[in-house]
Amino acid sequence: MLQNRSSYPPQQSAVAPSLASSSEKSIPTSLTPSALRTSVTTPRKVTIYDRNLNRRAPELSLAAFAFLFNEIVQYSQKNVKGIQEMETKLSENGYHVGQRVLELTVIREIKSAKRETRVLGLLQFINTSIWKSVFGKPADALEKSKDQEDEYMIIDNDPIVNKYISVPKEMSQLNCAAFQAGIVEAVMDGCQFPARVTAHSVPTDLFPLKTVFLVKLDPVVVERERYMR
């Protein structure tokens, strides 16, 4: 439209190509100020990306989490055929959380962070940093399986997700900390140490909710470990 208008006297347009070119130049210059004006008049919206991630995390009541988690368990119980499928669902929920927890923790510890290249280093990072930032305390122990080269165990004597959950007798196989296992699995995967993580109840008299998180490494990881040794 602009060009049509600039060549408004039709006879002249053919005669003066220089005029046409000058009018072409005038188009961008006439556009720029208006483009500038709009960017000035519309105030930049504050988005979630402007927020400072290092802000110390506030606290909520444990009850709020317990109630919410309870609903997750109830919901996961629907439309599943067995306990295993239910644990998978819980684990998927945890995975979603774990991916984000890893990102947050790494961003916050960026100064002291180093890239973990060995299994043990990463597991220790999970045992301390991740556990602390999510559950407020480090995990209670980290063990290596005696028989299996590719298995490690993270032990939590009193996982908070299980605090208000009592498992009915007929479902004694179930451990809702599968959710927590999902978090660990996401962190392992996210750090390029693919693994399967499952939760197993190992009740003791002192710690009735004691849970072992079994980390089974992918063969790829085991092979890399051997190579790096």
Partner: peptide
């Protein structure tokens, strides 16, 4: 009550967990 009678948990755990519920 908040100061004396409530056990607490990291707020981000709740935030992210709720997020996973809605996403699901």
């Amino acid at each position: 009550v908040w100061k004396t009678r409530v056990e607490k948990v990291n707020a981000e755990l709740v935030t992210l967990t709720y997020g996973s519920v809605v996403a699901q």
